[in-house]
């Protein structure tokens, strides 16, 4: 189900260089470099408060950053023109807009702004989700509101789709449909997708690329398959903290084992030499284990 199109880095629809942002003096993003390759489905993963939403908002030009810059479909994020906006589908974490309008009014109002608006898709999705057209948006449950926002973002037939925790309020059926739709869009239309989540199974099901954000820093960004092949857990014996090794991503002491566990990645196709030490051993990591190891 993972997106099959080969990503093109040169013409990246979403790019950021050295983005830093502080709130009330507290760093939230720290010199983040980020690239969403053309045609990729990139899952942005991180713990609560890691800075995922802030990064997405900075990439979309919704906030002014303290340092760095971002581009969306080749234009500066803070000065996007209508040409770019027409090709962009965006769903915030809590879609609150136009709460006093009914569902059908909202769609009718917005359809005039998008030249490629797909009304047939809207109709079929509302039918499938059994969403009453005459209900005010404010009266919908959070999950229903999120579904409406997703339909809206997809009805644009976007070239770039950005979703901030899109599955957080959805039930399992709606979540699975969303993931299928994302994969379909990426596979058939070449839509580039960025979505943030902390549900690792969603990521494994649909993402072609993964980026790990931890305490405002982007620790890893790579194709999903590469990540699984190139990252592993390295167990090192001994109570003393081992010196920093090449390709190390994170470390923590393991008292039960009487040593240290490190997450390491291959450099030039090779594991660190420390893996050859007596008592050391390498262990393959699933995506969830990798996330937990890095985030803890």
């Amino acid at each position: 189900m993972n997106a099959m199109l080969k990503p093109q880095i040169d013409n990246a629809p979403l790019q950021a260089r050295g983005i830093s942002k502080r709130y009330d003096g507290r760093p939230v993003l720290d010199a983040v470099d980020f690239t969403l390759p053309e045609g990729a489905v990139l899952g942005l993963i991180g713990r609560n408060g890691a800075g995922k939403s802030t990064l997405i908002r900075a990439l979309m030009g919704l906030i002014e950053v303290d340092a760095g810059s971002a581009t969306v479909l080749g234009e500066p994020a803070l000065a996007m023109g209508d040409r770019v906006k027409e090709q962009l589908g965006y769903v915030p974490q809590q879609p609150d807009a136009l709460g006093w309008l009914r569902i059908d009014e909202m769609f009718a109002l917005l359809s005039g702004f998008y030249p490629r608006w797909d009304q047939a898709f809207v109709d079929s999705q509302l039918e499938r989700a059994r969403l009453p057209r005459d209900r005010a948006l404010a009266k919908l449950s959070p999950g229903e509101r999120q579904q409406v926002a997703l339909i809206r973002a997809l009805a644009v037939r976007p070239r770039l789709l950005v979703l901030d925790e899109p599955a957080a309020a959805l039930d399992p059926v709606a979540r699975r449909e969303l993931l299928r739709e994302i994969a379909l869009r990426a596979g058939e239309s070449g839509t580039s997708v960025l979505f943030s989540t902390h549900i690792v199974s969603d990521l494994e099901r649909v993402a072609s690329h993964v980026a790990f954000l931890h305490e405002g820093r982007l620790l890893l960004q790579a194709p999903l398959d590469d990540l699984k092949e190139r990252c592993a857990r390295l167990w090192l014996p001994g109570t003393a903290s081992p010196p920093r090794i090449a390709g190390e991503i994170s470390r923590r002491p393991q008292q039960a084992f009487g040593g240290w566990s490190l997450v390491v990645q291959q450099r030039d196709g090779r594991w660190p030499v420390e893996a050859q030490q007596p008592g050391a051993r390498l262990e393959a990591l699933g995506l969830e284990d990798l996330f937990v190891e890095i985030a803890e």
């Binding site: 979309m60 209508d82 027409e86 965006y90 915030p92 809590q94 609150d96």
Partner: peptide, 18 residues
């Protein structure tokens, strides 16, 4: 807390240049 409304407005085409 609901500043996502403004975010959605910022990305709406049809309002012209800045």
């Amino acid at each position: 807390k609901r500043d996502s409304e403004i975010g959605e407005l910022a990305l709406l085409p049809g309002l012209g240049h800045t």
